[in-house]
């Protein structure tokens, strides 16, 4: 299982990195979906099968498809691609990249400096998650539905054609 974790992690990091480098919106989305899928594998290796499935269905399946849909509507053509490529000159991104490397280095140092702790216990399956969700977290579920309602009403209002 640990090998699976490492390989999936490597793919997730590499593909997320490639999202940053892609000037083409569709290629970037493909890398983003790849990254989400590998994170789903990481979830599975951590013993969380339910959220692994949700990651694929909701994140990669629904949210990323919304992005694809917007690409289709806007038809980001070769002009936009050229523009993105101009922005991606090495001189524009060396600074942020160095900053990020420092940040990552710090974080790795912080977490490695602690004494080793293994992930304990067996896998937490859908049943336990559901019991928690509809038990102590019942109000959270209701609130999440209100949150989605706010998103729905807002998106409806903003998305409608102004002529109505």
């Amino acid at each position: 299982m640990i090998v699976v974790f490492y390989i999936a992690s490597g793919v997730a990091i590499l593909s997320t990195f490639l999202v940053i480098l892609q000037s083409n919106a569709v290629h970037a989305l493909l890398y983003a979906i790849l990254s989400l899928l590998s994170v789903a594998i990481v979830f599975f290796s951590l013993g969380a099968p339910l959220v692994a499935a949700l990651e694929v269905i909701v994140y990669a399946g629904a949210i990323m498809v919304l992005f694809v849909f917007v690409v289709m509507v806007l038809n980001l053509g070769p002009g936009a691609e050229g523009q993105e490529r101009v922005w991606l000159q090495p001189r524009t991104w060396t600074g942020p990249v160095i900053l990020t490397l420092v940040l990552i280095g710090e974080l790795i140092y912080i977490f490695l400096a602690r004494p080793g702790l293994a992930l304990g216990g067996p896998a937490i399956g859908p049943q336990e998650v559901s019991l928690a969700l509809y038990g102590p977290y019942l109000l959270g579920v209701e609130l999440a539905s209100i949150l989605l309602l706010a998103g729905l009403v807002g998106a409806y209002h903003l998305g409608r054609e102004p002529s109505d």
């Binding site: 299982m1 974790f5 992690s9 990481v42 790795i108 977490f111 602690r114 080793g116 702790l117 992930l119």
Partner: peptide, 12 residues
């Protein structure tokens, strides 16, 4: 499954 250390997950 116990062999994946927590800090590696957090580092990822």
């Amino acid at each position: 499954m116990a062999e994946v250390p927590t800090q590696y997950g957090i580092i990822l």
